[in-house]
């Protein structure tokens, strides 16, 4: 996985996230709702790719999410697959009121995995959850598919904005967690290295820095306990 980390400020993370899924499932509106809190019932169809940067706060750290909204039509995949490079997160969107869009999720996953890293953090998003009467794909089905493919899952509605930012945040948070786990791992590795190479020397160092009285009391505590 590639993480872009600003060299000047180590706290500054930049994650590239792609929005993919069939045409007219509401990708652009999910982004519009998330980034600008806007919704257009008839937004224009996306040609090629559109683009937004959004700041997200995770555990007090400011994270920049660079979100790429792609065209959904099948044939644009030839053009849009170039945009997947370097993505660490993906929102795989279908429309709960159109089974067809759910059926093509497999193809989209394929597409994602051929053109980006296998470890890209992916969430399956069933959009238009406000269309309760027209539902064609049940929540359970979505969940089952997500579990089978090892994806996160959420049903959203860009119209009433339910779960929209939650979906984005889930992805960003997971990426962040993976990243911090990696950092911790690296640190632990370092620690191991330290003991392996330095042996008793470090202890000597500590003995020097500690005041004698302190060490004495510490020993006393040890004995008494």
């Amino acid at each position: 996985m590639t993480f872009y980390i600003n060299e000047e400020q180590m706290e500054d993370y930049l994650f590239k996230i792609v929005l993919i899924g069939d045409s007219a499932v509401g990708k652009s509106n999910l982004l519009a709702r998330f980034a600008r809190d806007e919704f257009y019932s008839n937004s224009k169809s996306t040609i090629g790719v559109e683009f937004q940067t959004q700041k997200i706060d995770i555990e007090g750290k400011e994270i920049k999410a660079q979100i790429w909204d792609t065209a959904g039509q099948e044939r644009f995949r030839a053009v849009t697959s170039a945009y997947y490079r370097g993505a660490v997160g993906a929102l795989l969107v279908y429309d709960i009121s159109r089974r067809q869009t759910f059926d093509s999720i497999g193809r989209w996953l394929n597409e994602l995995h051929t053109h980006s890293d296998m470890n890209v953090v992916t969430i399956l998003v069933g959009n238009k959850s406000d269309l309760k009467d027209a539902r064609e794909v049940s929540t359970a089905e979505g969940k089952v598919l997500a579990e089978a493919q090892g994806l996160f899952f959420m049903e959203t509605s860009a119209l009433d904005s339910s779960n929209v930012s939650a979906a984005f945040q889930t992805v960003v948070k997971e990426i962040y967690n993976i990243l911090s786990r990696k950092v911790i791992l690296v640190q632990e590795h370092k620690k191991q290295d330290t003991s392996w190479m330095e042996n008793g020397k470090t202890i000597v160092l500590q003995g020097e820095t500690n005041h004698e009285a302190d060490s004495r009391t510490w020993r006393a505590k040890c004995c008494s306990s």
Binding site: S23, A24, S41, N42, S43, K44, S45, Q73, E74
Partner: peptide
């Protein structure tokens, strides 16, 4: 096969052409 695909896609796009 693509004809089927198109008829579905473009019907989605009709209201999204110069909306309003």
């Amino acid at each position: 096969v693509f004809i089927l695909e198109f008829s579905f896609v473009y019907s989605q796009d009709l209201p999204r052409t110069f909306p309003g």
